[in-house]
Design a protein around this nucleic acid. Structure first.
Lengths: 184, 184
DNA sequence: CGCAGGTGAGACATTGATGTCTCAATTTGG
DNA sequence: CCAAATTGAGACATCAATGTCTCACCTGCG
């Protein structure tokens, strides 16, 4: 039963992260069920969207836990976070595109909580001297999420190999595009 | 007349980049005109969306021209591009969120053209030894656009000061989040 | 075999946004 | 000052997506 819901949610993510306005028909077909059954599982479109959003936030939160971002040095913590979050990049892409979700106070609070954890990581890294202080922790946090979403889109549309995605994200975000003349 | 269209398009961008599904009522009000007049200027919602998309691509193309990205060393060219594109970041945010636009072959071709120019810039930079070769030019190009869009959203929602936006974009994208132990 | 539960297909009704029209009010231009 | 043109407000019609219902069918199970 729970498996059923989750598999439907997974299919919904695949469709909605690309086209947030996809019809229920399309989502149902992607999930391999009929529109009637989709309605039996989720009372309506709004409920479905909210469930997908909630799933995304749960997964993101779980990734923060898995990566233990509060532990160890900040750079290593961020690298662990990249590895933990990349598998759910499509879900993050959905979250990034669906601003409307944040009208819901419950969703919004949950998001604030996770975002605060990421900001704290960057702030800690700045205090440790690992991250640059010229860029605000808030912007680092937001840009990180933008790039995670970008990874999700690129992988889904076949522009980026899944195997390369974690490396591409971590290296660009941490090291930037410029080649370092020296480097240890 | 042309001014009229453009000012309406500007207002439409402000609304649509945040909520791509905003009603025509809302867009008309944001533009300070009635829904009837909006309809007189643009035959329908689809036409309006397409016009906004076309405007975005024209502006982006103009930014590439202004920055003369084919001239000089790649890093400087990219810094010029950042300065040129940041004022139109909201428009880029709209383009990034409206995947549906790329169903239109005309829009899609125009996009391909601009994207190719940016990719060429990164490729050139890699050959010059300025940009890292471990990251594909395609990914650099895409990530750059993701961050431009992120700048657009962050500025619009007041999370980032407009004055800081060009700096934040250029520094994060070029130099990454890590503090460089030495630097030149 | 027969029954219960769940599913898919389709037929509706409903709803909300969009497209179209009219008309009075205002502005523009001579 | 008057005529023409433009606009805003509102009343519809239209249309597409959604929500709801029915019913036949299959599947699993006793």
């Amino acid at each position: 039963m729970a498996t059923d819901r989750d598999s439907v949610l997974g299919a919904a993510v695949g469709v909605l992260s690309r086209r947030p306005t996809a019809h229920l028909d399309e989502i149902a077909r992607a999930a391999g069920i009929s529109r009637a059954t989709l309605h039996r599982i989720f009372p309506g479109r709004e409920a479905l969207i909210r469930e997908v959003g909630a799933l995304g936030l749960r997964r993101f939160s779980a990734a923060l836990d898995t990566a233990q971002i509060e532990e160890g040095d900040a750079e290593s913590a961020l690298r662990r976070l990249v590895d933990a979050v990349v598998p759910d990049a499509a879900l993050c892409a959905f979250l990034a595109g669906e601003n409307q979700l944040y009208d819901d106070p419950e969703i919004n609070d949950l998001w604030e909580l996770q975002d605060a954890r990421v900001r704290a990581l960057f702030l800690r890294g700045q205090q440790e001297g690992a991250f640059r202080v010229e860029l605000s922790a808030g912007w680092l946090s937001e840009a990180f999420f933008d790039l995670v979403a970008g990874i999700g889109w690129a992988v889904q549309e076949g522009r980026l190999a899944p195997r390369e995605s974690a490396f591409s994200l971590a290296e660009l975000f941490l090291g930037g595009a410029l080649r370092r003349p020296d480097t240890r």
